[in-house]
Simulated scan of single mutants.
Amino acid sequence: MDNTTWVANDTGQSDFILLGIFSQSKHPTLLWVVIFVLLLIALSGNTILIFLIYSDAHLHTPMYFFISQLSLMDMMYISVTVPKMLMDQVIGVNNISAPKCGMQMFLYVTLGGSECFLLAAMAYDRYVAICYPFHYPILMNHKVCILLAFGCWFLGSLDGFMLTSVTMTLAFCKSQEIHHFFCEVPAVMKLSCSDTSLYETLMYLCCVLMLLIPLTVISSSYFFILLTIYRMNSAKGRKKALTTCTSHMTVVILFYGAGIYNYMLPSSYHTPEKDMMASVFYTILTPVLNPLIYSLRNKDVTAAVKKMLNVGTVLQEAIK
């Protein structure tokens, strides 16, 4: 065994060092507080949205079922990376073992892939609701919704398994410092001393499938939706149809915009700082914004909130 091979195998088993975003900031304490507040908002906002959907009978529809799945994914998404990052900053430790890095990577990619397909399923749901309203209860019954949700989770986990298994079996003989705040695939891959050209091609093709196939479904769905809305005679009907789609399109643009930048643009467009900012956007900000987008722009959800607050007021008066 030559010295180079020994180094690769030896460092492949040692801890990685996450440099994170706090080392790049002039005010790390203030940044820590901001991220902690965003974490609380994301967790509480998505929890409340899930509770409202499952407690209010008026929200027991396919659209809100998918929104509840999106909120669940967002809660897990932000929990995979941010709590560890905040805790490491407090205790002054920023290392992560190879098995924990692999687990974090698997969960992160799985949730990201699942959300890609879920957004496509949500677009298909809106397409059926607007273009085939009379067949909607049959085409989007409870069994179909469950199967679509299961398919999203399965395809996401398949993507997570493929990317993680290949990335974590690479030989790491360069610096163990990951220029990121979590074990994201491109950032970890940069540490490898192996020839990663074949793997980079594989990852690119995989990400094209994971991003472009759902994006094609979303684009096709909204093309027919807009065509149907254009043909509507009722101005009120047009407004209602557009309102139900606007929130979803906003979420799609936020999520896919950052995802395409990180995983599909050539390496010449990337720097560690830009990559971290893009990851902050869809790892932290998107889970914060999604429940706000679906609640503030949705009359059914705001009505459910008012109903819940009224029940709380009645209970307080009854206790007094």
Rank of each mutant, 00 (worst) to 15 (best):
D74M: 14
M75Y: 04
M75G: 09
M76Q: 11
V80H: 05
V80I: 13
T81L: 15
T81E: 13
T81R: 07
V82C: 02
V82P: 00
V82E: 07
K84I: 04
K84N: 14
M85K: 04
M85N: 08
L86Q: 02
L86T: 05
L86D: 07
M87T: 11
D88W: 11
D88N: 14
Q89K: 06
Q89E: 13
Q89Y: 15
V90I: 05
V90F: 10
I91P: 03
V93R: 15
N94A: 09
N94K: 10
N94I: 03
I96S: 01
S97M: 03
S97N: 01
A98P: 06
A98D: 04
A98K: 08
K100P: 06
K100W: 12
K100N: 15
K100V: 08
C101D: 05
G102I: 00
G102S: 12
G102P: 02
M103N: 12
M103R: 10
M105S: 14
M105Y: 00
M105D: 06
M105G: 11
F106I: 03
F106W: 15
F106H: 08
F106P: 01
L107E: 08
L107R: 08
L107H: 05
Y108Q: 12
Y108W: 07
Y108K: 08
Y108G: 05
V109Q: 15
L111R: 06
L111G: 02
S114A: 15
S114R: 07
E115N: 13
E115L: 13
E115H: 13
F117A: 07
F117M: 10
F117G: 04
L118W: 09
L118G: 03
L118K: 02
L119V: 00
L119N: 04
L119K: 08
A121H: 04
M122K: 00
M122L: 10
M122F: 00
M122C: 11
A123R: 04
Y124M: 09
D125I: 08
D125S: 10
D125P: 03
R126G: 07
Y127G: 04
Y127A: 10
V128T: 05
A129Y: 09
I130Y: 02
C131P: 06
Y132T: 06
P133L: 09
F134S: 14
H135S: 15
Y136H: 13
P137T: 05
P137N: 00
P137D: 00
I138L: 10
I138F: 14
M140L: 14
H142S: 15
K143S: 14
V144Y: 05
V144L: 01
C145T: 02
C145W: 01
C145A: 13
I146S: 03
I146Q: 11
L147S: 12
L148Q: 06
L148W: 04
F150W: 03
G151I: 00
G151Q: 01
G151T: 05
G151C: 06
C152S: 13
C152G: 09
C152Y: 07
C152M: 09
C152E: 09
W153H: 12
W153G: 06
F154S: 11
G156W: 02
G156Q: 06
S157H: 03
L158I: 10
L158S: 11
D159V: 09
D159T: 14
F161E: 12
M162C: 13
M162W: 13
L163H: 06
T164N: 05
T164K: 03
S165K: 12
S165I: 01
M168Q: 06
M168A: 04
M168W: 11
L170A: 08
L170E: 14
A171T: 10
A171E: 12
F172W: 02
